[in-house]
Design a binder for these strands. Structure first.
Lengths: 111, 111
DNA sequence: ACGATATACCTCATCTGTCAAGGTATTTTT
DNA sequence: AAAAATACCTTGACAGATGAGGTATATCGT
C-alpha cells in the first residue's frame, strides 16, 4: 500500500528532523533512508524535500554545509540544531496525541 | 494539547464519514460530536466543514436533505452512501498503515 | 566508446485543503 | 432587551506538495 500525500502533510519536517537525529546527512541519502524505513510505502518527491530543507533552515531547525568534493556529485549536508531537537521532541509528543485522537475519530475507539 | 490543522489534513473526509456511519446527522451536531470525541483536542472550523460536505456530496460519498422544520433553525442532514462506506473502509485501512509507517519514521520504531 | 541509469542538486508555476472574515436567521438564556 | 447558542453558507488568501523542468557527474552494461 502507498500513502497519499495529504495524509503525510504536516509530518514532512518531523520526518526529516528524525532522520537527522541519527547524524548529518544529505538530501538524496535522507530520502533513500526514508523510503527504506517506510518499506516503499512512502517517499518524498524531490520538490517537497528541498522545499522542506529551505523551510527548516530558515526556521533555524537545521544548518547546512557543502561536503568534501571527493568522487561523485557535490553534496549538501544538513545538521539538526538544538532548536530542531526541541521541535522534534514536541512533534513526537504531538504524533502520539494524534494517534489517540484519530483512533477515536476514525476507528471509533473509546479513549 | 491541540493538534495543528496540517496534521489532520487529509483525514477530514474520513472523520466525517466515520461520524455518519453512526447515523444521519447535520453539520453543527457532527462538529460537536467530533470535538467531544477528540476531548477538545480538535474541531473543524466551519468553513472547513462545509467545504468537506460539498466535496463529499460531489464525489457521491454522502447525500443530503433538509430536516423537518420543527422548532429551531433549519438543519441539513447528511447520510453516507454505499460508495462512502467503501471509501471509509479503505480510509480505515490506510490509517492503520499510516500509523505503522509514521511510527517507523518519527519514533524510529522498528517495523 | 557510448547510451542508460544512478547519483545529486535546485526552481517555479500550479493545485488543493484550510480558514479568517464576513454574512443570514432562529431560539434560548440571562 | 441583550447576549449567547444554534444553524447555515461564501469568498479570498495562504501554505504545503508536486509535476515539470533544468544542471552536472559517476557508474554500469554492451
Amino acid at each position: 500500500m502507498s500513502l497519499s500525500a495529504d495524509i503525510l502533510r504536516g509530518h514532512t519536517d518531523t520526518i526529516i528532523l528524525a532522520q537527522l537525529m541519527a547524524g548529518d546527512s544529505y538530501g538524496y541519502e535522507i530520502n533513500k533512508n526514508i523510503s527504506q524505513r517506510a518499506q516503499g510505502a512512502y517517499g518524498f518527491k524531490e520538490a517537497t524535500l528541498y522545499t522542506a530543507f529551505k523551510r527548516l533552515e530558515q526556521n533555524g531547525m537545521i544548518t547546512s554545509y557543502w561536503g568534501d568534493d571527493g568522487p561523485g556529485a557535490r553534496r549538501r549536508y544538513y545538521a539538526i540544531t538544538e532548536a530542531g531537537m526541541g521541535q522534534l521532541a514536541a512533534d513526537r509528543r504531538e504524533w502520539s496525541e494524534t494517534k489517540q485522537v484519530l483512533d477515536a475519530l476514525i476507528l471509533m475507539k473509546e479513549g
